[in-house]
Write a protein that binds this DNA or RNA. Structure first.
Lengths: 149, 149
DNA sequence: TTTCATGAAACAAATAAAGTTACGAGAAAG
DNA sequence: CTTTCTCGTAACTTTATTTGTTTCATGAAA
């Protein structure tokens, strides 16, 4: 199964945006991911529509954060990406004749709904500020390791 | 994102196997799913290796259950299918240089592990016997509906 | 008016899952 | 003991989806 890496990508990008004082271009951000600027625009467009970021054209243009890191949760980003599927499994046939299959589907649907809401709760509990502070801890470790202090 | 429907398919098939007194052929089972017998063999092979079912060649051969329905959970079947990914999202790069991305990955990995174990708990709490009894309830409703009783 | 940037549409490539074909092997029926 | 039925497996094809790319229009700053 091919995983959707957009959430992970966007987290990475937005944290860099927060650090940069000025707008980051799609090209710069694409280099961070090792991909194409158009992919960045496509991926970020949902965040713009959700009001999490803003984009500006022309000289000195690029992408800017519209909220502070502690006001954005992973669930917000998931929603901005268009609520992509969280679970990798699902029912084969959505409206089967077979009563056995209907019973299977019903149980699966209930379990999947339960579990999806747990995943969303977990995503909602993590803010970008949390990850940013993890990063600062890492930076400290990194620094210490290189200076043997 | 394309969902993995093997769990759902196998539940359907195994419940039919439990109802049939005699072995079901891959061809019969393929017809139940609207697919090809080879797909059935491929999907069921993991269950055979896990000891949940048995297959027999030749005349009168086919697939047989090796355990009763209350001894098989959805987690057992998930394991027999080779522990396919449960979550549809993941990290873009597993060993990045960028410290920001490493912080993102670490948070994501922790959250994903937590959530995966919750999903597995949920799957382990459902047995095939549970679904079978849901089916019997449905059968009763169906019967009543058709006889207006 | 030139350069730099995004927006968006259309197209191409890569990937993974599902489906198919083909053939070998074992077991029962005749 | 030959035929028929069945699974096992490998190799191949098809299909669907995602990702990446090209291209051009639009707007803003130099």
């Amino acid at each position: 199964m091919k995983l959707d890496t957009r959430l992970s990508s966007v987290l990475h990008l937005v944290l860099h945006m927060a650090d940069a004082g000025s707008p980051l271009t799609s090209e710069t951000m694409a280099a961070m991911l090792g991909t194409n600027p158009v992919v960045v625009r496509r991926t970020m467009s949902g965040l713009r529509e959700a009001g999490l970021v803003r984009s500006e054209k022309g000289h000195g243009g690029g992408w800017l954060l519209e909220r502070s890191l502690n006001e954005i949760t992973l669930a917000d980003i998931h929603a901005a990406l268009g609520h992509p599927a969280l679970l990798a499994f699902g029912n084969r046939n959505d409206n089967p004749q077979c009563l056995v299959e209907r019973a299977v589907n019903a149980r699966m649907a209930t379990a999947m709904e339960d579990v999806q809401s747990l995943v969303l709760q977990r995503l909602a509990a993590i803010t970008l500020a949390d990850i940013r502070s993890d990063f600062e801890d890492k930076l400290k470790d990194h620094h210490h390791a290189h200076h043997h202090s």
